[in-house]
């Protein structure tokens, strides 16, 4: 009974700390909005470089391969019915609305989410977080807000790059394997896709960026102060982020469907 009670109390305390974390985050964002000059721009640019530019290659590669695979699998099935051209629809809609943002979110989780958890976890183990608090500096404003801003900027941009790479991957298969003219495939892609489709996918990335950053940072703050604590925090951040990304994607898609998008 003592153990069960202890676990429940621990969970409740974590939830309260989470609420407190969000409260602090809200206050710090308001402060930064009121005083943009006080924002830690240098750190923000560092994270933009880390999570954005350095992730561009892997994002383009994976999304390109996703478009490649989608076109190949879809083409194998659709060509039985003589509708090879509809592969453009399949690749375009799948990538721009669902797979592009989701894959970019997964890659960002692996690269940025785990890095955030490890970084903050290490700082906590080294009691740097406590030092910040002692100096009257909000660790959330100091550590979380630059990361959050950087992720909110780079993740949608990475999604755009990933979408384009996926479309080109699909085009490559459409031209080489399905023997479709470049103009026909690309024309069909431009015909069926709309700015709305692209925007809806990109909008998802803002939610994903917030989720990845906040879960990574939260896991870092919750890291146990021992040698394995940082590793567990990083692993937990990745697992939780991926799970929540998929759940969030589901709800966003349901929301889009409910408003007719």
């Amino acid at each position: 009974m003592d153990r069960i009670g202890g676990e429940i109390r621990k969970i409740l305390r974590q939830w309260m700390q989470l609420v407190e974390f969000f409260g602090q985050l809200g206050l710090d964002i308001r402060t930064d909005l009121r005083h943009p000059g006080r924002h830690r721009w240098r750190e923000t640019l560092y994270y933009i470089d880390l999570c954005g530019r350095r992730s561009l290659g892997i994002v383009v590669l994976i999304c390109g391969l996703m478009g490649f695979i989608l076109a190949l699998q879809g083409g194998l099935l659709i060509r039985e019915y003589g509708g090879e051209l509809f592969v453009a629809d399949l690749v375009g809609f799948s990538l721009l609305k669902e797979l592009g943002p989701l894959m970019v979110g997964m890659i960002a989780t692996g690269r940025a989410g785990s890095a955030f958890a490890a970084e903050i976890g290490t700082m906590k183990v080294n009691e740097e977080v406590s030092a910040l608090t002692t100096m009257g500096i909000s660790p959330v404003r100091f550590l979380v807000v630059p990361k959050l801003l950087a992720m909110l900027i780079v993740l949608p941009l990475l999604a755009v790059a990933g979408d384009m790479a996926g479309l080109l991957g699909g085009l490559l298969i459409g031209v080489t394997y399905l023997d479709l003219p470049v103009s026909a495939y690309w024309g069909r892609t431009l015909q069926v896709l709309s700015p709305q489709v692209l925007t809806l996918g990109v909008l998802k990335c803002f939610v994903f960026a917030a989720l990845i950053t906040l879960i990574g940072c939260w896991r870092g703050f919750q890291a146990d102060p021992d040698a394995q604590g940082v590793g567990r925090a990083a692993t937990g951040a990745v697992v939780s982020s991926i799970l929540l990304l998929v759940v969030a994607d589901l709800f966003i898609t349901l929301f889009y469907a409910s408003i007719g998008c």
Binding site: V154, P156, L157, V160, A161, V197, L198
Partner: peptide
């Protein structure tokens, strides 16, 4: 990186 991705986004919007 930021500017090029923004340009790409705008180009795609207009393209679609």
């Amino acid at each position: 990186f930021i500017l090029s991705m923004l340009v790409l986004f705008v180009v795609m919007l207009f393209g679609f």
